[in-house]
Design a protein around this nucleic acid. Structure first.
Length: 446
RNA sequence: GUGGCUAUAGCUCAGUAGGUUAGAGCGCUAGAUUGUGGUUCUGGAGGUCGUGGGUUCGAGACCCUCUAGCCACCCCA
């Protein structure tokens, strides 16, 4: 029988799970310190909750779940005859798997509006699913770690989220650049260049500036029917690398001025704080154009070939589609899989992050195996992860097993040790070895 | 959704103009080694060459089909 798992999904080995837990633990710890509380939502949402929230592209990438029972009986014959998948699908699938954590969160806020107080600060670490074609750093099942606050327009939260990014990546040991931009600045620039209607086209093109260069961006703008004259105006503005000089160049535009002031206020909050990573204004940054309305963020590793490790932004009206208008919010997300891949590639996992027990006990013969069993239960009672090799005998085999399962120590039990109530405790990596009583071992490993 | 590349042992890959019994390294296993592993040496097991078809006296190699994986684009974490 041929075995396999669906494309874009992965199994995790014990050591990988240990490392992932370490990583999630660091992220979660920072979230908690900043006063965010965890929530969870189901894997499955009503398809109607999900469709139409991520654009046409997003709808295509949604995993739909076939109805139970005699679903064909209730299927939309008409739509089937017309080969109209968009209309047919809802008649056979009323549920879908969540595509991100933000939309389910919006639904959650609306449904539980009586149980939560605003501003509501939540974090959520759960897997999401996208029927995307897998490639490097991209999977069909992957974890997102979201922190959002809804119910406040305070720009202090933008600053706070930048700090969270800074703290997490510092704790993980990945140097990053945190970039910030503003949606209204982008639409303002488009308006300034006389192509206000096409601001999204413009933004998607300049987002690729560092990848395809000015020439490539101009070509793409041309393909999107942005006139050359407008392109010139835009590139003139893109030359400004800091907020002050940009402000001087576009004084009369209130949308632009407002967005610049907002970003300046965010930087003012951060002023005087010691950040471990670089935070910079980047006029070419674009993301989440569908629903972000204010500041937008993105994090990239300083020296790793990997897409963004996270991003986010402010949205004025996330819950509006679910019937509760004018609830502002801001949040960011961490791309756990990519962060893991970077940690792995750069060997940043600490040596103490191991899958196996603290100690494996090896015995020579039946008598010492009996003794070792008493020892291992005593160590376990003290709350220390310990294991006993099931057969007494050759040490070579037992050493190899101890190393393979990731045990930190091996403890040898023989006739001499049994008579003295001791074990020979050896650190597998350093090779240091000492004969200790069980009590001493417990004290040492605790 | 579009395009490109790949598919040979558990893993990473060789396999020369189509020509006998398809190889290596790593891993696995047994021993050298009856109280000390990750070093070394020796032996052993393990392959319908992804699937189905075609060309040929002869196909792992050439052609087509399908499937799977990888990479890039779109988009995105």
């Amino acid at each position: 029988m041929e075995v396999g798992i669906p494309k874009g999904t992965r199994d995790f080995l014990p050591i990988e799970v240990a490392r992932r837990k370490w990583m999630f633990g660091i992220i979660e710890e920072v979230f908690k310190v900043y006063g965010y509380v965890p929530i969870e939502t189901p894997v499955l949402e009503n398809l109607s909750t999900l469709t139409g929230k991520y654009g046409e592209e997003g709808d295509r990438l949604l995993f739909k779940v076939l109805n139970n029972g005699d679903y064909l009986n209730k299927a939309d014959d008409q739509a089937y005859q017309n080969k109209d998948s968009n209309k047919f699908t809802p008649s056979i699938a009323k549920r879908g798997m969540r595509y991100d954590l933000t939309v389910p969160f919006a639904r959650y806020v609306v449904m539980h509006r009586n149980d939560i107080s605003l501003p509501f600060k939540r974090y959520q670490i759960q897997p999401v699913w996208r029927a995307d074609r897998p490639q490097k750093g991209r999977y069909q099942e992957f974890y997102q770690c979201d922190v959002d606050v809804v119910g406040s327009k305070s720009l202090s939260y933008e600053a706070e989220l930048i700090q969270i990014y800074d703290d997490v990546f510092a704790a993980l040991g990945i140097p990053v650049i945190i970039r910030i931009n503003h949606r209204q600045l982008l639409s303002g620039i488009a308006g300034f260049a006389g192509i206000g209607e096409q601001w999204i086209d413009m933004t998607m093109a300049i987002d690729k500036l560092d990848k395809i260069g000015e020439e490539g961006v101009r070509k793409e703008m041309g393909e999107r029917n942005i006139p050359a004259a407008a392109q010139d105006i835009i590139f003139n503005l893109l030359k400004h690398k800091d907020i002050a000089s940009l402000r001087a160049a576009v004084t009369e535009d209130p949308a632009v001025a407002g967005s610049l002031e907002e970003m300046e206020r965010v930087f003012n909050f951060l002023d005087g704080l010691t950040l471990k990573n670089k935070v910079q204004f980047d006029i070419t940054l674009a993301r989440g154009l569908g629903y972000y309305t204010g500041c937008i963020f993105e994090v990239t590793a300083v020296d790793a070939e990997m897409g963004s490790l996270g991003g986010g932004g402010r949205y004025d009206n996330l819950t509006g589609v679910f019937g509760w208008p004018d609830v502002p919010g801001v949040g960011v997300s961490f791309g756990a899989e990519r962060i893991y891949d970077v940690l792995e590639a750069k060997g940043l996992f600490p040596a103490h992050v191991q899958a196996g027990p603290k100690v494996l006990i090896a015995a020579f013969d039946d008598a010492s195996h009996q003794y070792a069993f008493k020892c291992v239960s005593q160590i376990r009672q003290a709350g220390i992860a310990a294991d006993l090799y099931p057969e007494p005998g050759k040490l070579k085999k037992q050493f190899k097993y101890a190393t393979d399962i990731g045990s930190t120590y091996i403890a040898i039990a023989g006739e001499t040790e049994a008579s003295k109530g001791t074990l020979n405790l050896k650190h597998l990596q350093s090779g240091e070895q000492e004969e200790l009583t069980i009590e001493a071992i417990i004290a040492k490993l605790k």
